[in-house]
Amino acid sequence: MEFFGVAVELLAMFTGFGLLIGILFGFFGMGGSFLVTPALLVMGYETNVAVGSGLAFVFGTSVIATLKHRDLGQVDYKLGVLMIAGTTAGIEVGKIGLEYLQHIGLADSVVSVAYVGLLGAIGAFVTYNAVADRDGGLVGEEDVDGDEEMPAIAQKIQSYRLPPMISLRGGVTVSLWMILVVAFATGLLSGFLGVGGGFIRMPALFYLVGVPVPVAVGTDLFEIVFSGGIGSFLYAQSGAVDLSIVVPLLAGSALGARLGAGATSLVEEDDIKIYFGVMLLLGAIAVAVRQVGGYLEMPVLDTVSLVIILGAALLVSGAVVLSSVRELRRTGPESSSSAAD
């Protein structure tokens, strides 16, 4: 049976996969192309179609997730625009570094090692901090606005009172120049590694700028609307965006993103960070396995890598849903909330 010339089974599979990714994307503000592109490659799609369709999907999902986060008051547009400006400049400089490495023939190995190292390091850092936080708090952290804990690095960055100072959501005031420096640095890494950068920006917004995690996620998503839109437009110019992939993926992820974004209001902030860290650590392992497979010319390791990524996605999105359900049940029947459905 076919619908618009596409097998219904394929549409159902993409919709289910989209639901899974949508939960992660809405919850963390990352994970779209990270999950979709490798899956499409293993399914046999051409590289440009896998990347282009992945980007178009990320664009659509980020629009939906941003709208949802906006409804929850978790998008700081001022910070988002500043981040876009700084990130764009950083990406351009990062690309120059990458082109130089390509010129001397070291791009693949350096980028692979840097990517795995960075993914693993951020994953380990976030997980360690969240676990330490839950076990009694880290040295150098203190309560801000009652229950919000601000990392020591963010406090240090906010202590530089270089005008103009910018007030952000969550009662945070930071120097404009500090925001631009953080944005430039994340853009630099993003351009150098050739990735969207959600996994770098979200922790950077929390750990360096100091905005609360839900605002970091919402603002990161706002930025992805622009980067995903421009990226998918460029690929669509050469016909590399396949709507038979994007449309069903988006249909599933729209629901997932709503659930994921709603879950950020229910799940403990430390739990969000632990899930995020575990997701990155498993992602680092998956990328490392794929790189080893390429080096040893063992295509089977590509499949192993995909299984790890999909397993991680299933595990973490399942944990998000379970935590939300547990929280809803804990608050009891007398409380009311429409954040999660």
Partner: peptide, 15 residues
Amino acid sequence: AAVLIGLVLAEAVIL
């Protein structure tokens, strides 16, 4: 490319 991105955007808003 513009129509395609417009379609994705429209689908996102409708959803």
